[in-house]
Write a protein that binds this DNA or RNA. Sequence first.
DNA 1: GCCCTGACTGCTA
DNA 2: TTAGCAGCCAGGG
Length: 120
Amino acid sequence: MEPSFFERVYRLVRQIPRGRVASYGQIAALLGHPQAARTVGWALNALRGSEVADVPWQRVINSAGRISISRADLGADLQRALLEEEGVAFDARGYVDWKRFGWAGLEWREIEGLWGDVKI
DNA sequence: GCCCTGACTGCTA
DNA sequence: TTAGCAGCCAGGG
């Protein structure tokens, strides 16, 4: 069974190492859909209960290097706090420096492996 | 199966 | 990493 797009997003996001950040567009591109950034955001928006603790959603920000969130329960403040706790720094304007904290992503082969060895 | 929405992005001015 | 706008994808109703 092929994992759903949401499921792929979650697995890939789990690969982002502590202290690094990736953009929605980057995640989408790694999944083979460079234009599906919004869908990635929606996938994270759909996280519920235990999934929230299981997926490092806070490591995903917009392409500008800024936090872009609108949920009431999981606010931008929380996201920023979680990231700072991991060592990610924000400048005075609230931007993260991609050069310092950006995630390089994975090799295509590694990504394929994420779908293969797991049963759905 | 159609229509709307959304934690986005790249292009233009 | 300026602001504004249209395009893109997957789910949910």
